[in-house]
């Protein structure tokens, strides 16, 4: 764990020092703000609907931010020739992956935290439960975690950042749109596909303030699976 935290510390510092980290954070907050203003604050709505609409926009932004954050983590290091420093140090591949994952998750958490002023604005003219806010944010972070793990896997298998971005975007799009495929398939396949979809069925309960254990387990499982796949990919590269 010490090594993972060491890697995470360096990555967080790198995000802070690079234009990319600031640019992604600023762009994410801008888009969330515009979305909130356009879809949440326009017209007269119930406070809970405004909050749900905010989480809907924030969840989409978070998925994109997670993939963008994950691209340079391994593919970028490979391109710059710095991955070899980690590969030849006495640390395990899983510590490299977990360290980088934690750093990117911390950045996503920070961006998410900064956005909290938007739900708080609802209290000016309306009322929502803090539980609804907390559950919605839990969903955002879990979704961000899963998208991040997917991005890390594509970053691990790619030789370049461009390739990682394309693969990450594609895989994320597939995972998100599985519910559409489910619509045109028969039982029991549609149930499986719908259950596997990253956003639709899984994220909606969080947006409405409903915390279901099965959805938490789903996001944790997706995160674990793709982080494990990224670790195994890193290990396998030594054989090639």
């Amino acid at each position: 764990m010490r090594n993972a935290l060491l890697v995470a510390g360096r990555e967080i510092g790198s995000y802070g020092r690079s234009l990319l980290g600031w640019a992604i954070g600023a762009a994410a907050l801008l888009v969330e703000g515009v979305w909130f203003s356009a879809n949440g604050l326009s017209g007269s709505r119930m406070s809970a609907d405004v909050l749900r609409e905010f989480f809907n926009g924030a969840s989409g932004v978070t998925m994109i931010v997670a993939v963008l954050m994950s691209i340079p983590l391994l593919a970028g290091e490979r391109e710059r020739g710095t991955l070899v420093l980690l590969n030849t140090a006495p640390i395990r591949d899983v510590e490299i992956i977990v360290g980088k994952y934690l750093a990117a998750l911390a950045m996503i958490g920070l961006i998410t935290l900064i956005s909290v002023y938007m739900p708080l604005l609802i209290f000016v003219n309306g009322k929502v439960s803090l539980g609804h806010v907390a559950v919605g944010y839990t969903g955002i972070v879990l979704l961000g975690s899963a998208a991040l793990a997917i991005g890390m896997f594509t970053s691990a298998v790619s030789r370049s950042q461009v390739m990682a971005a394309i693969l990450g975007g594609l895989l994320l799009a597939v995972m998100v749109t599985l519910w559409l495929v489910a619509k045109v398939t028969e039982p029991p396949v549609n149930g499986v596909l719908s259950g596997m979809a990253l956003h639709h069925q899984r994220q909606f309960p969080f947006m409405t303030g409903v915390l279901k254990l099965e959805n938490v387990v789903y996001y944790v499982a997706v995160t674990y699976f793709f982080l494990l796949a990224a670790t195994k990919t890193l290990e396998a590269r030594r054989w090639r």
Binding site: R10, G13, S18, R80, G81, T82, V84, I91
Partner: peptide, 25 residues
């Protein structure tokens, strides 16, 4: 190990980088 292209993080200072490498080892 020094590979043919030194594995350097350009955004770090020399001291911070060496400190990181030392801790990593």
């Amino acid at each position: 190990y020094l590979p043919d292209t030194p594995p350097l993080y350009g955004e770090m200072t020399v001291r911070a980088y060496l400190h990181f490498a030392a801790r990593l080892r």
